[in-house]
Amino acid sequence: MSEYLAVLLFAVAGIGIVLITFGISRLLRPHNPYPEKNVTYECAEETVGPSWIQFNNRFYIFALIFVIFDVEAIFLFPWAVAFGQLGLFALVEVTLFLMILFFGLFYAWKKGVLKWV
């Protein structure tokens, strides 16, 4: 278990090094802000309306389908590791499992969910 300490310490080291480079850059760089410079960039036009707006819900539908497939990936990882010892039963089982999932995907496909526009 102690080897997972590496994850924590690498994260600490990574964040630390990035913040140190930001600090070094702060010492070296000029600092001269004025209102026109700090305006949101919008192709040399003044910004129209707020930027935090409602979004195309396609993005969320794809995220939903992704969640289903990602949960399935969690089931498939242990299956793949143990497949050598499990044999035919596991193969049939996973084929059925994937068929049910892909039935859902094809249903979404036929309903036009996967179409972007």
């Binding site: 480079t21 070094i24 850059s25 702060r26 070296l28 760089r29 000029p30 600092h31 001269n32 802000p33 209102p35 410079k37 700090n38 305006v39 949101t40 960039y41």
Partner: peptide, 12 residues
């Protein structure tokens, strides 16, 4: 060069 560049921060 990037180390010496000004850090422009948008107001909002």
């Amino acid at each position: 060069k990037l180390l010496q560049k000004e850090d422009v921060r948008v107001t909002n």
